[in-house]
Design a protein around this nucleic acid. Structure first.
Lengths: 155, 155
DNA sequence: TATTGTTATACTCTATAACTATA
DNA sequence: TATAGTTATAGAGTATAACAATA
């Protein structure tokens, strides 16, 4: 974690807040990585399954676009997911260049488990928060997200 | 981004909140990756530089412990950072098995740039927030972090 | 001519295991 | 005997470029 607070500069509550946001991101990432590993998935492969669950059988080209990675990368991800039984490849009915990727039963079960895990995590993080605290958090979060999107757009 | 809200389950404000937290983490990660790439750094290498900046010349063993990776991984990271001029290796003064890694001027300059980037980001995210919104966000963030740490401890 | 997905190649991060040089 | 860091090896994610099959 890139914690910035040190003796080099005057401490800033803004920087301290960013540090805690970054800590949250790191902890969340580790938690999700651990959960997925228990099901035999990496984050990249899980992401592909997730896209598949929401978009139904897709060509690899469509998956590459949805995931924001190259066609070559999708080949590798699908290879791995097919070898471990999460997806299957089948020919596209009308375009003989293309391949359709679809979830197996095992893949669908894993996606359902991922959804349950996320719902459970949301519960653990938020369910017992005082409503005012939860609402304040969400309000601030939305404002921060908006500013972050603006900053990225400017860059 | 693993956005969970779909037609499969009753929409939940808790899940929606987690989705936005996850969106924030993804956008922050992409933003930082882009900034670091502009300086010729990956996140792993930047993390090592950051540890070095805060801990002064360190053995690779100490770096491996601080980063939570294997000794082999540190060898690779230091190889890359040395080849690109961010760090140098030198013999440990008293333990001839060990190697000290230290920042070059270029490495120190890069760490300073990283610190500036983070401070700038904190400004962009928080500086123009109404104080009450900022405080509500931080209060909620602290509560969420606490619950996340508890959840991880239980697991 | 353009597109889909592959092979070829390469770089990075990560790990374990075996080994060398030292403690 | 234990530790620091290396080589050897391997798997995963990522990319570009060249290529085959098909549109």
């Amino acid at each position: 974690m890139l914690t910035i607070v040190d003796g080099d500069a005057a401490p800033s509550s803004l920087i301290a807040a960013l540090d805690r946001v970054l800590e949250l991101t790191v902890l969340l990432h580790d938690d999700m990585t651990t959960s997925l590993a228990a099901e035999g998935l990496t984050t990249s492969r899980a992401h592909l399954l997730w896209v598949l669950h929401h978009g139904r059988p897709s060509t690899q080209r469509a998956l590459a676009d949805a995931l924001g990675v190259s066609a070559r990368t999708v080949t590798g991800l699908v290879d791995g997911l097919a070898a471990t039984g999460f997806v299957t490849r089948s020919p596209h009915p009308t375009d003989r260049r293309a391949t359709l990727v679809q979830l197996t039963d095992h893949g669908a079960t894993s996606v359902a488990a991922m959804a349950r895990d996320q719902a459970g995590l949301a519960d653990q993080l938020f369910a017992d928060l005082p409503p005012a605290v939860f609402e304040g958090f969400v309000e601030g979060l939305d404002a921060v997200l908006e500013r972050l999107r603006e900053a990225i757009d400017r860059a």
